[in-house]
């Protein structure tokens, strides 16, 4: 974080709901770049892209060729775009672990006007139905919150949303805007439409959900990206299924009255978490 800058209470964010060319980083970066320019023109200070937006989601064994270190060559390109456009950018990509060759993570990256800020490694890797993430990825072990000019930003990725403790951890670390990047196919839409609201309400925080659009190997991503306010109201929503781009203002001063009205953080019962841990181990 640049010490000369003060944290903003109000700013505009852009949700860039894109479809990807599977395995084609050059084309996807060009698309990301185009959307960053659009965000800049519309006065946004943060633009968010979906899960695995660097490579596309269905890349299977090609992930071993496509994964990169973070920071690395592709994050450098996005960093340069962030500097040039004075913009915060969040996107998803397969990450190669620094000390290994084939240990990979499904990661979210945050870069800002001063360059690389941080990354989050997805904790819950779906490996059921058509998903096979554990075949390729190692789970992350740390909740991620980054202190920026736009306040503390928390991260989760797609399937993490089903496990409220991940989002809760980011909130407890001070995140007021929690970002969920996603690659969710149409058959899961009804779940996500509820969970995105629930995560915002139970944490009294802004919740920005950005999903892929388009079709990869027959898998149709449902889009529907949205910014949900701290009371659970959908403030802006992108179209279903197709590429779209929407913006909306985040105003942190909206959180206080909501937190007073529905004090879920005040009423947290830490002792229950010990019980939760115990019972989860017995399952």
């Amino acid at each position: 974080m640049n010490g000369d800058r003060r944290m903003k209470e109000r700013f505009k964010i852009a949700l860039a709901q894109i479809s990807c060319r599977q395995g084609n980083k050059t084309e996807n970066i060009a698309n990301i770049s185009k959307n960053i320019s659009k965000a800049k023109k519309q006065g946004a200070e943060l633009v968010i892209f979906p899960e695995m937006s660097l490579t596309g989601y269905v890349i299977k064994d090609e992930v071993y060729d496509l994964a990169e270190r973070i920071p690395g060559p592709s994050t450098k390109i996005i960093e340069d775009l962030a500097k040039k456009n004075d913009m915060h950018i969040i996107f998803g990509m397969p990450e190669r672990s620094p000390d290994t060759e084939a240990t990979l993570h499904n990661s979210a990256v945050l870069v800002g006007p001063d360059g690389y800020i941080g990354k989050y490694r997805k904790m819950y890797l779906p490996t059921h139905s058509i998903f096979e993430e554990k075949r390729y990825f190692r789970p992350g072990y740390e909740a991620a919150v980054f202190d920026t000019d736009l306040g503390k930003l928390g991260f989760i990725i797609c399937y993490d949303i089903y496990f409220p403790e991940v989002t809760r951890l980011t909130r407890l670390k001070g995140a007021k805007l929690i970002v969920c990047i996603s690659a969710s196919p149409g058959v899961r839409r009804s779940y996500f439409e509820i969970l995105t609201l629930a995560r915002a309400i139970e944490n009294t925080a802004y919740f920005a959900y950005v999903n892929l659009a388009g079709i990869e190997d027959g898998l149709q991503f449902w889009g529907g990206s949205r910014l949900v306010g701290p009371s659970g109201r959908v403030l802006v929503q992108a179209k279903y299924d197709v590429d779209d781009f929407v913006t909306h203002e985040v105003d942190y001063s909206d959180i206080r009255p909501i937190e007073a009205f529905l004090p879920t953080l005040r009423d947290l019962r830490p002792e229950l978490f010990d019980q939760l841990k115990h019972d989860a181990e017995q399952l």
Binding site: V58, I59, K60, D61, E62, E132, R135, D217, G218
Partner: peptide
């Protein structure tokens, strides 16, 4: 090492 129809997993 990798076998067609088994664990060659490629995009269509």
């Amino acid at each position: 090492y990798r076998t067609v129809g088994a664990d060659f997993r490629l995009q269509r």
